[in-house]
Design a protein around this nucleic acid. Sequence first.
RNA 1: AGGACUGUAGCUCAGCUGGUUAGAGCACCUGACUGAUAUUCAGGGGGUCGCCCGUUCGAUUCGGGCCAGUCCUACCA
Length: 967
Amino acid sequence: MLAVALSRAGTLPHGYEAKDKVDEMTDYKSTLNLPQTEFPMKASLAQREPEMLARWQAMDLYGKIRAISAGRPRFVLHDGPPYANGELHLGHSVNKSLKDFIVKAKTLAGFDSPYVPGWDCHGLPIEHNVEKKLGKAGKKVSFAEFRKACREYAAAQVEIQKQDFVRLGVLGDWANPYLTMDFKTEADTVRALGKIAANGHLVKGFKPVYWSVVGGSALAEAEVEYQDKTSFAIDVRFPVANPAELFARFKGQGVTLNLDGIQNVSVVIWTTTPWTLPSNQAVCLNAELEYALVDCALESGRETLVLATAMVDEIMQRYGSESYGVLGSVKGAALEKLSLQHPFVDKQVPVILGEHVTTDAGTGAVHTAPDHGVDDFNVGMAYGLGTLNLVDDDGVFTSAADKFAGAHVYKADELVIEELKERHALVAVKKIVHSYAHCWRTKTPLIYRATPQWFISMNEQGLLQSALDAVAKVKWIPDWGQARIELMLKGSPDWCVSRQRTWGVPITLFVNKETQQLHPRTAELIEEVALRIEQKGIDAWFELTAEDLLGAEAAQYSKVTDTLDVWFDSGVTHYSVLQQRGLGYPADLYLEGSDQHRGWFQSSLKTAVAMYGTAPYRQVLTHGFTVDAKGYKMSKSLGNTISPKEVFQEYGADILRLWVASTDFRGEMTASTEVLKRVADSYRRIRNTARFLLSNLSGFDPAQNLVAPDNMVALDYWITRQAQLLQHQVVEDYENYHFLGVYQKVHNFCVIELGSFYLDVIKDRQYTTRDDCLARRSTQTAMYHIVEILSKLIAPILSFTADEIWASMPGQRAESVFLSQFSEGLPLLAESADMNDQFWQQVMAVKTAVNKELEKQRNDKLIGAALSAEVTLYCDAGLSSLLSRLDDELRFALMVSHAALQPMSAAVDAATTEVPGLQLRITPSANTKCVRCWHHRADIGSNAAHPELCLRCVENIDGLGEKRLYA
RNA sequence: AGGACUGUAGCUCAGCUGGUUAGAGCACCUGACUGAUAUUCAGGGGGUCGCCCGUUCGAUUCGGGCCAGUCCUACCA
């Protein structure tokens, strides 16, 4: 523009006469309405997004949304709290992105959808990190100091994670999130426990639980991980106390025995945990399995053993015996309650029966120590066997363990084996590598240990059945989630909620020292404690004494010092957060990874049912995990991780969000550089489409120039309606959490309806007609509606870009797209009667056929640009009457310089097409090209004032302007 | 080891209750335009529907088995 002005003023240096012609052309160019916009093609998201965040924050966008949403129907997505420890990974981003899509889509759909993010702040991992710095609580530092350090550590972690969530563009109450370590939340967690206790679900039990001897604490199942471990595998004799009794049992089953020379008879057990032998209380057989009396020659001499019949050969081979014989076999049931001599403790133990005994490994006879195994404990209970408690909190044998007293369980295997050798009780010993339970934090082997613990009983008050009933009323997405959680519930034992740790919400109970019963005023006491915790945090409990609350009766009660399983904290947030913050109960939606069927979905369900008898959620949505290009899970050790930070920097948060939307979250979600590149490509397409729409709206003021639907050019009316139809489909996709559909539909609309048809076609009209004529205002009106719809449709996903588009749109509007609604704007246009949706579909098909033929000519170097060609369409009657409706404007729809309709019978040298009833012929135009509109027209030169222009252009420059009705 | 889920073009995904040459977008190749220009338009090539076996006139679609991956559980004395 500037150059033209200068040349007109004659300020160009001499010697540029050759440029005159160019100048003349550019002169006409200045009469065109070419696109113009400040909206950059290059997104520069890494830089621009933080600026937009600052803007949202400055205007208090979240607060404004809350204000305008007040009174609308509620939709509450309750945030499952991530654990306040460690860098965020892609999985966090997936989870938070999906939540944000939903909250934003619900907001735009006219709901009041608050989002209060949370963090899980107590528990072992944090404690462990603090331990590394300060040492163990109670040793190097006081418990109070330790807890203070944990609190500070967690708070710092929250801040670190929060930054990335905010950076991701997640809109929520970030200034006031919920932390499970908030004093108020801690107090309400205690109150929740009180309610569950009051409802009779909390029981004190004595059970073997996973115990970390290094951590000195019981662990939840979720805190256990499996690693390979080398263990001793030993075969041990349990001599039969009274062989005659054993023989009698065989005879009782009709087995005749030749007992010549038989003296020593033993049942042999196999174990990989020799250290548990001091706690042995029984040997367990399977009632249904056959057991053989085997006479064999071992290195140590001839003896008789009881072994599972099916395993005799295998076992003899293992023992290196080549000479052996089976004297007879009986079912395990026949040997019940037979007395055996413990190999080194002066006592006899019974043979008992249990279904868990198999012939997979060992001897078919299982050493049973109820202290150290769940199966053992359960089967022992059935036989009235209790626990011995020979191992203390640190994994050291107590004085009751006699000669093993003072030995650590990690060291006791060798001692036991020595003892067995001395007693001639060891048949075989070797080392095996097997997968074994380890502490997820300290990476040390775990043991089972029977300890006094607090349980939420699944059966005491029918919790299991109530939970199953509640599950059935919830909508699970995908639907297999229901079967999954039901299966888990049915298989889940009583929930051990007590931990012997420092950084956790205390179990604020007083137990009668004599009766082990809870204090009769437990409910009142808990409320008193809760009030104190509200003021001072959990330290309030640890600091108070029984006397403080119980006065004189304190002597009869002991104060429980255990803490709660962290899963309890997050599990009761339906009470401590949803209800206490007035968000409502139950939540409309919980949304987490599929692993949470076992975790948060379950802990939330159990506690809610225990408190109210109902599920805390109406719907549960789950997503899968992220994997790499090969389908393997992302892990640091494999080195195949992609961090959200990397993606923010390299592509931007909108790209990360678009990736989440573009991937089917129900299964594994593949993230790789290729995938991200593809996503970035399609982002650019959407962005550029919006940019082009905006660039054509320069000079358009909707208040002045908006064309009423009835006055719009047919094509513009049609595309506006198409955009509206798209909107309806996309809004439905949002409702169904089908973001993949949103992404694909929006992208395809940009590419197909807009890119390869509408926008291509209307360029001629948009550029060449008078800037204020109806033909042009009509298409601008369409583009105005489209870009507004587009901005709203992508807003939940491409939040930054949507608001950037929003800010670039002409007209008066809310200061952010998030303050608008899907339903605002033009009501859905009715389908046009004569040029309906199907009509334009046909036109597009014809255009595609023309394109194919043009391409052939182009490949033969006969034509270049489409406008250098003319087309004759030979049509059957139906198609002819259809296309003739476009009248003279058919050529604009087909984007050629001339288009003529002929009957099929006139076809000569015509190409067949894929469109039924259509043949066509393309010819290079014989006419010259209009320097302004580039159409090749016969009427060029008809106007002496503009010798290089077609008459259409002359009309648009000097006349009243061209009229368009259809395209 | 058991359970659940997943496996369709290089990538992301459609393919309803089994039925004509399996679709879309991207990527790729070729070309056009240069008035969306680190953009846009057009045309084109590309798939043993994880593998095997059944049921059926016919299977990507149903059944069984296997393989691979993911999540959960168990790992066992």
